[in-house]
């Protein structure tokens, strides 16, 4: 799976205003609403579901990266977006470091395989130190989109 298969480019944010875990999740989910990927009346329900998942254990997986996510019946395909916090946000990460780079995923309840393949793509690409660093340094949503497209072109399709 490629980034372009699930990242809503109109919902990419290069400089989130939020300074808290719930704040950044809400800001990213709102961006998905604005991009027309999830409906406004489902926003609260989705934010709540993602926070509930965080309660089971932080999705801050280290290296300044977090992958907040949930299954939700209101989507019929995997949707996601990317955001960067220039300052970094305390996400109760596994390594304790603040998180700068966020990949938020909302997947249909009956498609665990798609979710797994999206996680695979994100984690495989982020193992590349240069890609990770370049993404965190991206100044505009267009820069992020460009980096994702480049990774899609170079990555082995799986």
């Amino acid at each position: 799976m490629k980034f372009s298969d699930f990242v809503a480019v109109d919902a990419i944010r290069s400089n989130v205003e939020a300074t808290s875990k719930e704040g950044v999740i809400r800001e990213m989910a709102s961006a998905l609403v604005e991009a027309g990927k999830i409906t406004r009346d489902q926003l609260e329900s989705i934010v709540k579901a993602i926070m509930k998942r965080e309660d089971l254990g932080s999705t801050g997986i280290g290296r300044g990266v977090a992958v907040p996510h949930t299954k939700h019946p209101s989507v019929d395909r995997l949707v996601g977006t990317v955001a960067i916090s220039q300052e970094g946000i305390d996400f109760e990460s596994l390594d304790g470091d603040p998180v700068q780079l966020f990949f938020l995923l909302v997947s249909p309840p009956d498609r665990p395989g798609d979710h797994l393949r999206a996680l695979e793509n994100i984690s495989r690409q982020l193992r590349d130190d240069a890609f990770c660093r370049d993404l965190k340094a991206a100044a505009t949503p267009a820069d992020i989109q460009h980096l994702l497209e480049e990774a899609d072109r170079q990555g082995v399709a799986t």
Partner: peptide, 13 residues
Amino acid sequence: RSILDLLSLAAAQ
């Protein structure tokens, strides 16, 4: 020891 590494296995059921 690496979550990123483990996730990149994409190990389905």
